[in-house]
Design a protein around this nucleic acid. Structure first.
Length: 851
RNA sequence: GCCCAAGUGGCGGAAUUGGUAUACGCGGUGGACUUAAAAUCCGCUUCCUUUACCGGAUUAUGGGUUCGAGUCCCAUCUUGGGCACCA
């Protein structure tokens, strides 16, 4: 056998691993060969959606990163849990079913088989006894159990409101699934639709999610995105009293009962109620109609700049604000009504694109509590109904948007913050900090300090208080689709929801013939007439036909991995304690949605006593994409997709593919595929093979390569620890090149075989078998790294002019080094006389002579 | 518009603490082996000058700090990503 044949070698070892049931994680901590207790390590990739197209090169990169680390830790004798699973609910399977009539259950099964086969063909060190699948009843039974726990605590609730609706996918979407006004799946522009929907109250955890973010060992990019998404703003809510108005009360009554904006009356709801703790205040939970607006003579606003209250010259309400009808006077009614209608027609995309300020005057006034001045009340679409109170106090002198608005409609502008003299900001509108002016007894106070003092004054007057507001909304989890986890709820005759008792779980997905959702906004589950009926406590009820957002199913799967076949609990108490939280989680997607949801569920189940930790993932690695050779994204329509199985079967083998994808560049950067590049990696592995089977020379003594061997061990080990996979491969290539020059001993090749194990596990196993050695990770000896003779770089005025050789023992002896350097002809030529000073850095093996 | 990251040969990229810039691979090129090709092996390959040595220039651009800067500081340009009327 003198030719490297990866296909045969890989087949052999994959069969062996399959038969042995290799890579099983042990729920009890084991001891190493030399008696130390094994440390546990729990790694996972973001489990894939098994599409009909099979694995693509992006999966391979993602899985290989986890596999390299898995094998590295295994070789270091750690107890490693590296499971695998499939995120199988979702629209593609359902759309496929609508088109072909093949059930999602059966299509999913086919796809899983294919994915499993392909993953095994990559030689992944997976504990296959822990495979999970979110659409299997054994799994979704516990997803439903999780839902019920949230429901019991009031964190799963139902509310009617305007929601994002994708007309193509015929379902509602969570805010996290709307990207730039478009559906994350099909890219179609989303619409607003008013529906009664289920939500998870993630906003209850807004503060903790935000406050814990900084401490995570996650990429800064992801942490920033999450913080921006939560979007906490600290400020104040302030009530502005209405000025007396000669409104006809008859008209007001008629307007109040008008139904321009049915249902979605968020601003009124956004203030506190019994159900919603004041501290979070952003929940979309149903609650009593607030007393602050409709019955009283106040308008409540939210501001982050209470210090500028003396500069507030007008109020602006969102057109959808429930008080607008009451505020509108006879003369302005036609205009206001027209403006509201125009706003309703505009899509959110249009509202975002056109930032030219528009608005109309309602005809009413409020009183500025600080100045006593009358403030006109306007409506404008630059004020958003869904944030804060849906109303603002406009301070045109110190807010860019208010300034634009005031300029356009000729409203008064009053400066109350003095721009510092050194400020480079020369625009008329100043948004920065400074001393207060024109602000009564607050004059002279720095604006930053004034925030607190003004709030204290407002509180004294009983017209305002400190307030924290968030951009994050509650998580909409209803989906009007068939292929999802049924929500375990049923409705009685009065339409009141009741939880399905836990002993009746799982609520199975019924089989249907027609998967098409109906036009009424109900999923195909509504067509399973028998399934719809359920009896709870002797009462006949009708099942919920919405299914759960797929993200709910993936919010707890990491914990399921610790006891995947448990039929008594979602996860076993002892197993979770031993394995979780996940040490290293690797993915390249879902920066806010999934990665925020798992943190939310973790905190909730920790509060319920089911988890002994509050963050689910210690270290997150976020890998980059692999693009087509032309640098564009791979896609079927562009015809530039590289199929990893083609690469493997064309003769390169899985080891070459794996190693190439680790060598292509830093794991967290995007990279462009280069089919030629994999040839270079194949040549490298072939050279490893040749060294082992044809070139190794046992006659030579093993010490002559000691320095390069120890250097290679050190470099590869340290690079793997800092996840610099590409340079680890480069170091292995260098090592092989050196062994080709110097000749390799049994020990040299053994070390090589062990070090390539994480990248090219099949070849590694083949070589180690031939050598008769185990795969335990080698260690290096610092003493062996020191060479007898050292080369010192000599610079004159910072420019390289010579290199001198010294004995290793003289490294710290500056006089010797200097003496040798000054004898050098080239150094003398550039020195031209006596040196002014010399700088010697033994660590860098560098001498700089300043002339 | 705001925030963040990055810019190094023909290409992917390396340089871990401020210390030999261009490791490793691709591509190119010369040679060995071969009837020939492939495969394999051995050289060369940042640019300019040079047969060669020597030398000069160079990490997007312009400044600065330092004995010494790809790395630190300031400004500018370009690319990528995120947010985008969030009061």
């Amino acid at each position: 056998m003198d030719k490297y044949d990866p296909i045969q070698i890989e087949k052999k070892w994959q069969k062996k691993w399959e038969e042995e049931g290799a890579f099983k994680a042990d729920d009890n901590a084991q001891k190493t060969a030399d008696g130390r207790p094994k440390a546990k390590m729990f790694l996972a990739e973001m489990f894939p959606y098994p599409s009909g197209a099979g694995l693509h090169v992006g999966h391979v990169r993602n899985f290989t990163i986890v596999d390299v680390l898995t094998r590295f830790y295994r070789q270091q004798e750690m107890n490693v849990l590296r499971p695998f699973g499939y995120d199988t609910f979702g629209l593609p399977a359902e759309n496929y079913a609508i088109k072909t009539g093949i059930s999602p259950q059966s299509a999913t099964e086919t796809n899983i088989k294919n994915f499993r086969k392909q993953a095994k063909r990559l030689g992944l060190a997976i504990d296959w006894s822990r495979e999970i699948n979110t659409s299997s009843p054994e799994y979704y039974r516990w997803t439903q159990w999780c839902f019920l726990q949230l429901y019991k605590k009031g964190l799963a609730y139902r509310k009617e409101s305007e929601q994002w609706w994708c007309p193509v996918d015929q379902t509602v979407l969570a805010n996290e699934q709307v990207e730039g006004g478009k559906c994350w799946r099909c890219g179609h522009e989303v619409e607003k639709k008013k529906m009664k929907q289920w939500f998870f109250k993630i906003t209850d955890y807004a503060d903790e999610l935000l406050d814990n973010t900084d401490a995570l060992d996650w990429p800064e990019k992801i942490k920033t995105m999450q913080k921006n998404w939560i979007g906490r703003s600290e400020g104040a809510e302030i009530d502005f009293e209405l000025a007396n108005q000669a409104n006809s009360s008859k008209d007001n009554k008629r307007w109040q009962s008008a139904t321009l904006f049915e249902g979605d009356t968020e601003p009124g709801k956004a203030s506190s109620s019994a159900e919603t703790p004041v501290a979070t205040g952003v929940s979309d939970a149903p609650r009593e109609e607030s007393s602050s607006c409709q019955q009283t003579r106040h308008i409540r606003v939210f501001t982050t700049r209470p210090d500028t209250i003396f500069g507030a010259t007008f109020l602006v309400l969102a057109p959808e604000h429930p008080m607008v009808p009451a505020l509108t006077t006879e003369d302005t009614r036609a205009e206001v009504e027209a403006y509201i209608k125009a706003t309703q027609k505009k899509s959110d995309i249009e509202r975002q694109e056109n930032k030219e300020k528009t608005g109309v005057f309602t005809g009413s006034y409020a009183i500025n509590p600080a100045t006593g001045e009358k403030m006109p009340i306007w409506i404008a679409d630059y004020v958003l109904i869904g944030y804060g109170e849906g109303a603002i106090m406009a301070v045109p002198a110190h807010d860019e948007r208010d300034y634009e608005f005031a300029k356009k409609f000729d409203l008064s502008i009053k400066v109350v913050i003095e721009k510092p003299e050194d400020s480079e900001d020369d625009s008329e509108c100043y948004g920065g900090e400074g001393k207060l002016v024109n602000s009564g007894h607050f004059n002279g106070i720095n604006s930053y300090d004034a925030r607190e003092q003004v709030v204290a004054w407002l509180e004294e007057q009983g017209i305002g208080k400190q307030k924290v507001t968030y951009k994050m909304r509650d998580w909409l989890i209803s989906r009007q689709r068939y292929w999802g986890c049924p929500i375990p709820i049923a409705y009685d005759k009065n339409g009141e929801p009741h939880p399905i008792p836990e002993d009746q779980l799982p609520v199975m997905i019924p089989e249907v013939k027609d998967y098409q959702p109906d036009n009424s906004g109900r999923s195909a589950l509504a067509k399973a007439k028998d399934w719809l009926k359920v009896t709870i406590d002797g009462e006949e009820m009708t099942r919920e036909t919405d299914t759960l957002d797929g993200y709910a199913c993936s919010s707890w799967y990491l914990w399921r991995y610790t006891s995947p076949h448990d039929d008594k609990a979602a996860w076993d108490e002892d197993a979770i304690k031993y394995w979780a939280p996940t040490d290293i989680y690797v993915g390249g997607d879902h920066a806010v949605a999934h990665l925020l949801y798992i943190r939310f569920w973790c905190k909730f189940f920790a509060d319920e006593g089911y988890l002994p930790f509050r963050e689910p993932v210690k270290t997150l690695l976020y890998n980059g994409y692999i693009n087509a050779p032309d640098g564009r994204k791979m896609s079927k329509s562009k015809g530039n997709v590289i199929d990893p199985l083609d690469i493997i079967e064309s003769g390169y083998g899985a080891d070459s593919l794996r190693t190439y994808e680790m060598f292509i560049g830093p794991y967290d950067q995007d990279a462009a595929w280069d089919t030629k590049g994999i040839g270079g990696v194949y040549r490298f592995l072939n050279r490893c093979y040749q060294l082992c089977f044809n070139l190794a020379d046992d006659e030579k003594n093993s010490s002559h390569n000691s320095a390069i061997r120890n250097k290679a061990i050190k470099k590869v080990t340290e690079d793997l620890h800092r996840r610099s996979f590409n340079t680890a491969v480069a170091a292995l290539m260098e090592y092989v090149n050196e062994l080709y020059k110097s000749g390799a001993t049994h020990e040299d090749v053994t070390v090589l075989a062990k070090l390539i194990g994480p990248f090219a596990p099949h070849l590694s196993a083949e070589m180690l078998e031939h050598l008769g050695e185990n795969d335990i990770w080698p260690t290096w000896d610092e003493k062996e790294l020191v060479e007898d003779e050292l080369e010192i770089v000599v610079q004159v005025n910072g420019k390289l002019r010579a290199k001198v050789k010294i004995n290793a023992g003289d490294l710290e002896n500056q006089a010797v080094v200097e003496g040798l350097a000054l004898q050098d002809e080239n150094v003398q030529k550039f020195l031209n006389g006596e040196p002014k000073k010399t700088i010697y850095v033994p660590r860098a093996k560098l001498l700089n002579i300043v002339a």
